[in-house]
Design a binder for these strands. Sequence first.
DNA 1: GGGCTTATGTCACTCAGTGGCACAATAGCG
DNA 2: CGCTATTGTGCCACTGAGTGACATAAGCCC
Lengths: 219, 219
Amino acid sequence: MSTVTPGELTLRERKKLRTREALIDTALRRFTAQGFDDTTLDELCAEVEISKRTFFRYFATKEDVATAPTQDMWALFLSGLGSRRLPRGGPLMELLGRELLATVEEMPAGGWAEHAVLSCRLAAATPSMSAHSLQFCDRTTRAALAVLRERFGFDPRDLRPRLALDLLVAAFHCALEEWTARPGPASREGLAACLREALSAVPGAVTLEVADRQGPGGG
Amino acid sequence: MSTVTPGELTLRERKKLRTREALIDTALRRFTAQGFDDTTLDELCAEVEISKRTFFRYFATKEDVATAPTQDMWALFLSGLGSRRLPRGGPLMELLGRELLATVEEMPAGGWAEHAVLSCRLAAATPSMSAHSLQFCDRTTRAALAVLRERFGFDPRDLRPRLALDLLVAAFHCALEEWTARPGPASREGLAACLREALSAVPGAVTLEVADRQGPGGG
DNA sequence: GGGCTTATGTCACTCAGTGGCACAATAGCG
DNA sequence: CGCTATTGTGCCACTGAGTGACATAAGCCC
């Protein structure tokens, strides 16, 4: 949640936000340059000029500061899913896809995409970051499932909404991978385009047939 | 020199397997009784009568010993996918489902199901375990994707095989949840039944429509 | 038995993360 | 302005996971 309105914030709150941003920015830079595991919190804290004790008042773990961009995005997706006016009558999968696309395009223009790319590239190379990220995704998915049940009256025993959400997450991860692999400046629009492409592959995932060629049958 | 070694394993190997089993069994019992975070490795090692240093020669992390049952299953699934004779001509999703069901039914009868249930219940209550488990799943999925591409000649740019694998994992997690929630003794057959049910919901995940009732439209 | 390999134990260390407490900065009030 | 309650921060000591180096013990093979 970085809805910054400098006029309406007290000095204390502005300072806190600035420290948080400085932490994320510095962390992503240092982790990218030196590696996540090879950068100690002591170094990071020294550069931001805070004590290690203070770091843990901003982020619960070292992984949290490095995965903040995607976590912020999923949090926004979730709150949108709970508060937005949703259309009715179409396929759930398409509705979810549109919601996620809308969320991506609502992310702050100033630096989010750049941070997100760095964070994702780091995650791809750092097991503990990827684990942390995946776990956050899982929690968000469960929360989203509760929202869907509440808003559309799905039977809790019906597995299809949950599978649809997992499919959405899978498509998003495909999109992220493609997006972060591309050279050049990163943008929300680029991510949205990758996501649209990934979502279009979803129906085929269930129906795809294995070719009947004669390869090595295995043994 | 003495005659044959039973089971074709040397004494050293048998000892190692026994230590590994003892670690898993003791760990799951203590973690279940005391909580994962409130049990130190020192306690665990004292009970199994090995040094902490030796523990880390069996498992890379504390989470690994607690998630061993599912990791063992996925490892078997992966090796089966690489070595088994696979049918051709049907939908990939069904092939994957059959492979996973076969893997479940191939797990050792002696204690695996009981361990797996304990492990999954722990994971549901322990973020770091769940994160670790999810990350392992992700790695396995990528490895499986490489196998599928190699054996069936899928285009690396085609996202559908990957989405199918993620869908398989999602269905498996649904099955695990249902299975671990059930009272009574746990069995591979029970898990297989849950998995069959979850797999049958897969096609509906893509096509499911949202009801056109007039609930609270949100706002 | 003797020599080789491999598993294990011991010790010392790094670093993430926490609890407690003192101190400093800000907010709010007269 | 000064005074006080609140809240953020620094410092210190501590726990516990995980690692590297090196010595010793256990199993293996001849």
